[in-house]
């Protein structure tokens, strides 16, 4: 289990990285923390001809709060976010730090990056779910310049995004959650990728309709559950929530009973957490 031959290129700036990706062509791949890419290379399931290392690019690992919006640089690690006082103490973003406990284990969190997780777009990973839950904007830079992609439009499916091959995620902007938040996930073992997960933002005020419920485990990419969002906004009971999730899962054509119950269970748990905070 050793990677196939590869060429290594170290980018000094984002534009340098974009140039490298453009010059080297489609068989090139960005590497940052490497926590997903390197094992795939070791199994030879991924065999890029060129690696463009962006970890030496200065300034991409910042975590900043401005105008209530949290901007996390692509190279910020999961552990940096978990321990960031900025994230922990921001009223609208505490869930992000709390959710980091579910990302792998410490030695993965010290290397794995936010940008890498977003770009890798594993449908069961925490970052894509958080991005959709918060209505985050993903900033990417490519030959055509810089653009912001709403998270909901970014994830096409499993391991698939709408990013171009020459585009690099540089930062992710998280608007604050207006209401209380909750998160729950289930995997066979602690630290595993989730079989089902749910993130919830309660409505910002009584009567408001801005609740959000996003789950993984119901579709290849994290998915909002509209009926459940309405139910959460209406302060539904556990049983009513269960029925609304089932209705949403019918829409998504999830027909495996076990998977349906897992997703439902996680939504109810996440709502419970949000309501008790």
């Amino acid at each position: 289990m050793k990677p196939a031959p590869v060429s290594y290129h170290r980018a000094s700036s984002v534009s340098d990285a974009v140039d490298l990706l453009t010059t080297l062509g489609e068989e090139s791949k960005v590497i940052a923390g490497g926590q997903s890419l390197v094992p795939m290379m070791s199994f030879r399931l991924a065999r890029p001809e060129h690696l463009v290392d962006i970890t030496r690019i200065p300034g991409l690992d910042s975590i900043e709060l401005a105008d209530d919006e949290l901007t996390i640089g692509a190279l910020a690690t999961h552990q940096a976010v978990l321990e960031s006082p900025v994230v922990r103490h921001s009223a609208g973003h505490g869930l992000i730090a709390r959710t980091m406990r579910h990302v792998g284990h410490l030695p993965i969190r010290t290397r794995g990056t936010v940008g890498g997780s977003i770009a890798h777009a594993d449908g069961s990973a925490e970052w894509p779910l958080l991005a959709v839950l918060f209505g985050a904007r993903v900033v990417a830079e490519g030959v055509a310049g810089e653009r912001e992609v709403p998270a909901e439009e970014l994830f096409f499916g499993l391991y698939t995004t709408c990013l171009e091959p020459d585009e690099i995620v540089t930062r992710v902007i998280f608007p604050p959650a207006k209401g209380a938040t909750g998160f729950a996930e289930y995997g066979l073992r602690h630290g595993d990728f989730a079989l089902a997960a749910a993130g919830v933002v309660l409505p910002s005020a009584v009567g408001a309709t801005d609740a959000r419920v996003v789950v993984s485990g119901a579709a290849p990419a994290p998915t909002r559950l509209p009926a459940t969002e309405a139910a959460v906004a209406a302060g539904a009971s556990d049983e009513a929530l269960r029925q609304s999730v089932m209705a949403d899962l019918d829409e998504l054509e999830v027909d495996d009973d076990y998977q349906r119950d897992l997703v439902t269970g996680m939504v109810i748990k996440a709502v419970k957490e949000a309501r008790t905070r």
Partner: peptide
């Protein structure tokens, strides 16, 4: 060699990391 077992854990700049998931270069 795929980052699950942790037998290769070392400290990189003081932080624990799986050394099978980091390229030497």
């Amino acid at each position: 060699e795929h980052g699950i077992c942790g037998a290769c854990t070392v400290l990189i700049d003081g932080e624990p990391a799986r050394s099978c998931l980091v390229l030497g270069v």
